[in-house]
């Protein structure tokens, strides 16, 4: 197939629809509340190393700094809220899951941070006119795969910033262990792809944006017990969570953990662009 014939929006939608076809049900907001503890543990590894590295990559290019107001779409446990609040003027977290909000507040208390607020909604329900152009940076990480109408949501992000937009996505974020567990439980059914990087780069580029990329690396350390919970939530969406399934997850995790901890180093792509700057499209 010739490169120019790829319709990246269509490609995105196909991946989105393909995932739903394999699932018994889609994620609900309660699933994310359930995930709050394990996700928080992951993002807090090495004093929020992931968030700090993303901040440093952006700050190095003047995309964020101490006078900046930043909004994060889908904050989870405070992935960027906590590390960014330490450096920037103010953070707004858009987060619908009560469990995640509780963890953001706990993590903020622990870090001594109070220069943030929370919009308790899904991003699609946030009223853009109320916050239009009020931020210097809009950032989101591993959230946009939940948006089937991807360019519509990206355009909404662009409307709230007078500066830059940033999307952070894992590179090949399903590690060998994740794939191994999938095949043990799901057999021949292919692992469901989640649209992320580099598709998002292609999408932005094809739609006239001028994206820049930095690859960052960060460690993730989770207790086997919390990781078990993550896998339980995940597989409850794809199959019946029987004691046999739980046992398969448990034994695979034990084999891959040391002293009750599971550790890995992950790479992510930090993709940012200035919505005011466009390529001339032929």
């Amino acid at each position: 197939m010739a490169a120019t014939t790829v319709d990246w929006i269509r490609n995105w939608e196909e991946i989105y629809d393909g995932r739903l076809k394999v699932m018994q049900r889609d994620y609900s907001i309660d699933d994310w509340s359930e995930r709050a503890e394990d996700y928080s543990e992951r993002r807090k590894t090495n004093q929020y190393e992931f968030g700090e590295n993303v901040y440093a990559a952006l700050a190095g290019h003047g995309i964020v700094g101490e006078t900046f107001r930043v909004i994060e779409v889908g904050s989870g446990p405070g992935t960027f809220v906590i590390p960014f609040s330490k450096h920037a003027e103010h953070m707004t977290a858009v987060e619908p899951a009560e469990g995640m909000i509780r963890v953001i507040r706990e993590n903020a208390r622990e870090a001594g941070i109070d220069n943030f607020d929370i919009i308790n909604r899904i991003w699609q329900d946030v009223s853009i006119p109320e916050i239009q152009g009020k931020y210097d940076l809009v950032i989101t990480s591993t959230v946009i795969w939940m948006f089937r109408d991807i360019m519509a949501q990206i355009s909404r992000m662009e409307e709230v910033t007078r500066g830059h937009c940033c999307v952070v996505e894992g590179i090949d974020s399903t590690d060998a262990l994740g794939k191994k567990i999938w095949h043990t439980i799901m057999g021949e059914i292919p692992y469901p792809p989640y649209p992320g990087y580099p598709i998002v780069f292609n999408l932005l580029y094809q739609n006239g944006r001028i994206p820049q990329v930095r690859i960052v690396e960060a460690k993730s350390r989770r207790s086997t017990e919390k990781l078990m919970k993550m896998y339980n939530v995940f597989y409850s969406l794809y199959t019946e969570l029987t004691p046999e399934v739980e046992e398969k997850i448990h034994s695979a995790l034990l084999a891959d953990s040391a002293d009750g901890l599971h550790e890995g180093t992950y790479r992510s792509a930090v993709v940012w662009w200035d919505p005011k700057e466009r390529r001339e499209m032929v």
């Binding site: 490169a3 590179i171 580099p198 780069f201 292609n202 580029y205 094809q206 001028i210 994206p211 820049q212 990329v213 930095r214 690859i215 790479r267 792509a269």
Partner: peptide
């Protein structure tokens, strides 16, 4: 350019990008 970018990514080379 985009062909080059995707080719490298497919081969497991994930470069930083500046346009």
């Amino acid at each position: 350019f985009i062909t080059l970018f995707n080719y490298l990514n497919d081969e497991g080379i994930y470069p930083n990008v500046n346009i």
